[in-house]
Computed example of a mutant assay.
Amino acid sequence: MTMPVLTSRPAHPFLSGAANLVPGLLLTGGIAAVAFGLRQLPGLQLFSPLILAIVLGMALHNLVGTPVVAKPGVTFTLRRILRAAIVLLGLQLTAAQIVEVGVAGVAVIALTLVATFLFTVRLGRLLGVDAPLAQLIAAGTSICGASAVIATNTVTRAPDEDVAYAVACVTVFGSIAMFLYPLLPGLLHLTPRAYGLWAGASIHEVAQVVAAAYQDGQAAGEFGTIAKLTRVMMLAPVVLTLGFLASRRAGAGTETARPPVPWFVLGFIAMIAFNSLVTVPAEMKTVLVGLTTFLLSMALAAMGLETDIRRLRAKGLRPLLLGLAAFAFVGSFSLMLVMTIG
């Protein structure tokens, strides 16, 4: 009598694919958690977890190496989790914030953004900086730092080394602004509201704006934060426009070419609309803000895990000079507009 042979059923493709993601998700999540922990140490509170996460990821990759088994999860984090985090970012913004800034304030922010972006891209061309890298530095300087860099890269599709370089640029010069700006309102005879608008319209990261603006008092801090969040709102149209222009260049001469629709940006806009119409409980909003920052930190950790410092060195000093020039332009141009409107 023959015994039946028991054969194991193959794992479902979805379950098998999900299992492949686990090592990379654990690695990027672990790096993000360490970044949050390091931020509690003296001297590191001024750096956002996003910046610490990409530095840790780069250190691990270049000193030890990214494990092969983690590659699928790292790629998933860069693509899917990044987009989910940008959608959630919309819950931190409302249309009412634009009303509070006022027409003149919004005009200052919008004009500064457009002028800085165009100036940086144009100067990058003159300096011989690769167009995708120049666009990333332009987005990070003109909109909202590292978040804008990684969001813009979803349409520019620059190498990871370009993204890391751009993040480094906006981090360095945003940090300089954070320490420099609080020394200037008295010298420039700026009111708290004018100083807050200037800080919100020109400093790179949200956290850097908060740190700099509150140095001039509560009123300057609150208005600077609102002005900065209004500027973050403009991330969506910028990414949509860049995606459209990229598709036009790629599909030049073909009638069937269609611009790719970055659905995550539409989700970002939808979340702003939702947050403007529905009151989200403060406790839930606190949790969502923390979750969004953590997911963005995971994405930056993944970026670091795919960044080779040797390739960064090969970029040379020209992109750094471009970042410096963009920093000087955004500060001086926005200050001119703020002083013009009084």
Rank of each mutant, 00 (worst) to 15 (best):
T120C: 01
T225F: 03
L188F: 13
A70L: 08
L335W: 07
Q92F: 05
P182K: 00
S332M: 11
G29M: 07
A168C: 06
A301S: 13
M303G: 09
A166T: 03
F268C: 00
V289I: 15
D308M: 11
L188M: 12
V172C: 06
P72W: 10
A164C: 05
A194D: 06
A207Q: 11
C169E: 09
L93M: 13
F179A: 15
G37Q: 06
G17P: 04
L93F: 09
A270R: 00
M1L: 05
T141Q: 07
F119S: 01
A139I: 02
Y195R: 00
A194S: 02
V121E: 08
T241N: 04
V74H: 08
E161C: 08
G140Q: 01
V209P: 12
I51T: 14
G57W: 01
L123F: 01
L6P: 04
L63A: 14
G30Y: 13
R258K: 15
D160F: 10
G57H: 01
T75H: 12
L113D: 07
Q218R: 14
A11H: 02
L82K: 12
L26I: 14
R79V: 12
V261I: 15
G37I: 04
T293E: 15
L295Y: 00
L197F: 00
K71E: 14
M284E: 08
S175N: 10
V64R: 08
G221F: 02
G65T: 08
R311L: 14
E255W: 11
L291V: 15
L56C: 12
P259E: 06
A158P: 03
I341V: 10
A207T: 10
L111Y: 01
F173C: 03
L41G: 13
V330L: 07
A158S: 07
L242M: 12
H12F: 03
G290R: 15
M303F: 08
I98N: 04
C144G: 04
M3G: 02
L320Q: 04
F47Y: 15
A35W: 05
G243E: 00
A220P: 02
G140H: 01
T154V: 07
A164Y: 00
A302S: 05
R79S: 15
T230I: 03
L197V: 00
P132F: 07
T156Y: 03
V108T: 05
M3V: 08
V114W: 03
V87K: 07
T241R: 04
L296I: 03
I81S: 09
G105W: 05
M178D: 10
P259W: 14
V69T: 13
N153A: 02
A236E: 03
A301F: 03
L320P: 06
